[in-house]
Amino acid sequence: MLSRITKVAACALALSPLTGFAQETDRTWYLNVSLNSFGLDDTSTEESRVVESCSLGVTGCSSSTETTKYDTSFDSDNTLSLIGGYYAETVRVELEYTQVDSDLDTNSASEETLELNLLMVNVWKDFDLYGFKPYAGGSFGLGFAEQGDTDDEFVLARLGFGLNFDLIDRARLDIGYRLMYAEPDMVMEGSNREIVRDLRGGSFVIGLGYAF
């Protein structure tokens, strides 16, 4: 994880001399579209299924719960985020929506896709450092996860940092990294099964914003 963050920071610093910084105006509201290379960390999954068994000559059937544990890895997904933001001097407040589809790679028999819908409030602190415009901050929000016939709502938080580059008047390029933490032991429930796992991950971000 540390090596990925280092690569993003190095890339942003390498690009900074290539862009001129436009003079700040009285801009307050802005829209941003970001391309995210989103990846979830490998995790351990516990899955419980309700199994019914019926015997010949016996009236009725009985049910039992079978629990298995297996390791899960996730394919990365390149996805877009839609962001609306507001400048408040050196602090920016944003509302962001992202949808992620990640195929699961497990040692179980099932092959499914995990779909995440994330709605977050971001708060970023902007700095002016020797001509560079770095920022850092965090996010909190709600997510909806769906895998097969199971789903769950959960709370998540993120930490992030990056660099902004003014391209032309009112247009800005954003290069950054986000580290996501979902609530621990997230429980996804379906009609006859339950999936418990932790979700953590990160995303590289390249965004283009326009201020009004």
Results as ranks from 00 to 15, higher is better:
residue 172 R to Q: 08
residue 189 E to Y: 08
residue 95 L to W: 06
residue 27 R to P: 00
residue 57 G to T: 15
residue 68 T to I: 06
residue 40 L to M: 09
residue 141 G to H: 08
residue 79 T to M: 03
residue 148 G to Y: 14
residue 54 C to L: 12
residue 17 P to A: 08
residue 34 S to I: 06
residue 153 E to M: 09
residue 45 T to I: 13
residue 102 S to M: 10
residue 89 E to N: 12
residue 189 E to W: 06
residue 125 K to R: 10
residue 161 F to V: 05
residue 36 N to V: 04
residue 30 Y to M: 03
residue 102 S to E: 08
residue 163 L to Q: 08
residue 35 L to K: 14
residue 184 P to C: 04
residue 30 Y to Q: 04
residue 161 F to Y: 12
residue 25 T to G: 05
residue 141 G to W: 09
residue 200 R to E: 08
residue 88 A to S: 12
residue 197 R to G: 00
residue 99 Q to M: 09
residue 164 N to P: 00
residue 161 F to R: 01
residue 164 N to H: 15
residue 73 S to H: 07
residue 138 G to F: 10
residue 86 Y to P: 00
residue 82 L to H: 03
residue 36 N to F: 13
residue 114 L to V: 06
residue 190 G to K: 10
residue 129 L to M: 06
residue 63 S to R: 14
residue 19 T to Y: 12
residue 102 S to Y: 13
residue 41 D to A: 07
residue 184 P to Q: 11
residue 22 A to C: 04
residue 187 V to M: 02
residue 129 L to I: 13
residue 153 E to S: 11
residue 7 K to H: 11
residue 205 V to D: 01
residue 182 A to M: 11
residue 204 F to K: 09
residue 186 M to T: 15
residue 33 V to E: 00
residue 61 C to D: 11
residue 64 S to C: 05
residue 102 S to H: 10
residue 202 G to W: 08
residue 25 T to D: 09
residue 166 D to H: 03
residue 195 I to K: 04
residue 55 S to E: 13
residue 85 G to T: 07
residue 19 T to L: 13
residue 131 G to Q: 11
residue 47 E to R: 14
residue 185 D to L: 02
residue 211 A to Y: 12
residue 98 T to M: 09
residue 74 F to H: 05
residue 125 K to Q: 05
residue 91 V to R: 03
residue 187 V to C: 00
residue 23 Q to F: 11
residue 125 K to Y: 03
residue 132 F to H: 06
residue 151 D to S: 15
residue 141 G to S: 07
residue 209 G to L: 03
residue 149 D to A: 08
residue 21 F to K: 10
residue 110 S to V: 14
residue 19 T to F: 15
residue 169 D to R: 11
residue 189 E to D: 13
residue 10 A to W: 13
residue 106 T to H: 10
residue 134 P to Q: 15
residue 45 T to F: 09
residue 186 M to Y: 11
residue 199 L to R: 06
residue 179 L to A: 05
residue 151 D to K: 13
residue 29 W to L: 04
residue 8 V to F: 05
residue 88 A to Y: 15
residue 126 D to F: 01
residue 41 D to W: 11
residue 119 L to Q: 04
residue 164 N to C: 03
residue 188 M to Q: 09
residue 62 S to P: 00
residue 158 R to F: 07
residue 61 C to E: 12
residue 194 E to N: 11
residue 56 L to W: 15
residue 76 S to K: 13
residue 118 L to S: 02
residue 153 E to G: 07
residue 42 D to A: 09
residue 100 V to I: 13
residue 64 S to W: 15
residue 52 E to F: 14
residue 100 V to E: 02
residue 123 V to S: 02
residue 1 M to D: 03
residue 27 R to I: 02
residue 178 R to W: 11
residue 157 A to K: 10
residue 193 R to F: 10
residue 173 L to R: 05
residue 106 T to W: 12
residue 166 D to M: 03
residue 184 P to F: 08
residue 133 K to T: 01
residue 188 M to C: 02
residue 201 G to K: 12
residue 111 E to M: 07
residue 202 G to C: 05
residue 26 D to N: 14
residue 104 L to Y: 10
residue 68 T to A: 05
residue 171 A to R: 15
residue 45 T to V: 15
residue 162 G to R: 04
residue 70 Y to F: 14
residue 209 G to P: 04
residue 161 F to K: 01
residue 191 S to G: 11
residue 58 V to T: 11
residue 135 Y to L: 01
residue 23 Q to Y: 12
